[in-house]
Amino acid sequence: MKKIVLAFATMLLVMCISTQSTQAQLKRFSIGPFVEAGFPVGKFNDTHNTGYGIGLGADVKLVAGLTAVGSVSYFRFPGKDYTSNGSTYTYPNYNAVPIRLGLRYQLISLLYVKVEGGTVQYTGKNYNGVGGLVAPGIGIRLLGLDVEAKYEAWFKDGTRGFFGLKAGYNF
C-alpha cells in the first residue's frame, strides 16, 4: 500500500519538475488538494453512513478540451448500528485509499464531464484488500476552484456505490 502511494507521489513530482518550464507559459499542469463527501446508495446505504475523504489531484492538458486527470485520497465510511436478538452491533467502517486516473472533457468554458477508473485499497482491520473502481462525473471549474458531482462504484466482493460531491483548488 505504501509502495502504491509512494509511486503515485513520485509520478506527480516528476510531472511537476518536467512541466515546470511550460507551466509558467501555458499552465498545462495543475495540482491541488480536495475534500469530498460520499452518500451511499443501495445495499451500501443499509450498512454505512455518509463518508468523507481528503486527497490530492493533478491534471495535464492534452489537446483542446481534453485533460488527463489523476488523484489519490483517503476515504472513510462509518458503519451503521443494527440490532439483532436484542443486542446492538455496528457494521465495520470502510477505510479506503482510492487511486483514480481518467479523462476530463471541457464541454463549455466552465462545464466539464469526467470519467475515472482505478483501484481502491481497503485499509480496515475487518475488511482489507484491493478492488476496482469507476467514477463518472460532471463539474464546474472556475480559475482554480473545482466542484464536481459524481457517482462512484467500488468493486470487491460486490459493489459499493455512492453519489459524491468533491470540492478542491488547483494551483
Rank of each mutant, 00 (worst) to 15 (best):
G139V: 03
Y112R: 09
P98F: 02
L110I: 14
V72S: 05
L142N: 14
S73F: 10
G42T: 00
G53Y: 09
S84Y: 14
G55F: 00
L142G: 13
G139E: 00
P98Y: 04
G144R: 12
F75A: 08
N49C: 08
D81L: 10
L26H: 13
S109D: 15
R76K: 15
G65W: 10
G55Y: 07
F44A: 03
R141S: 08
V97D: 02
G117M: 12
R28W: 13
G65C: 02
V69A: 04
L103D: 03
Y82L: 14
N93C: 02
N95S: 00
V115Y: 11
A37M: 11
L145Y: 10
E148A: 07
A58D: 03
S84D: 14
G53K: 05
A153W: 01
P98H: 00
L145N: 10
N95I: 06
Y82C: 15
T67W: 05
V147A: 12
F29Q: 06
V60C: 11
T90I: 12
A58T: 07
G55A: 10
K114V: 12
Y112E: 03
I99C: 08
V60N: 00
K114D: 13
W154Q: 09
V115D: 11
L26V: 12
V41F: 01
I31D: 03
I138E: 04
Y112T: 04
L101I: 14
L145G: 09
V60Q: 10
R100G: 01
G32S: 01
L110W: 11
G139W: 01
P136C: 07
R76E: 12
G124F: 06
Y122Q: 00
Q121M: 14
N126C: 04
L107M: 09
G102A: 01
G32V: 07
A153V: 05
Y122F: 13
S71W: 05
N126K: 13
W154F: 13
N126L: 01
I108T: 14
R28T: 15
D59Q: 15
V130W: 10
A153L: 04
S109L: 11
D146A: 01
F29W: 06
F44E: 02
G137F: 02
V41H: 05
G32L: 08
G139C: 04
L133G: 01
Y52V: 00
D146M: 10
Y151I: 04
T88E: 11
T83I: 15
V97M: 13
G65V: 06
I54E: 10
Y122R: 07
S87F: 15
G65P: 07
Y91W: 15
W154M: 11
S87L: 15
R76D: 12
V147N: 08
G42W: 05
S109F: 08
K114Q: 15
V120H: 00
R141I: 06
G118M: 06
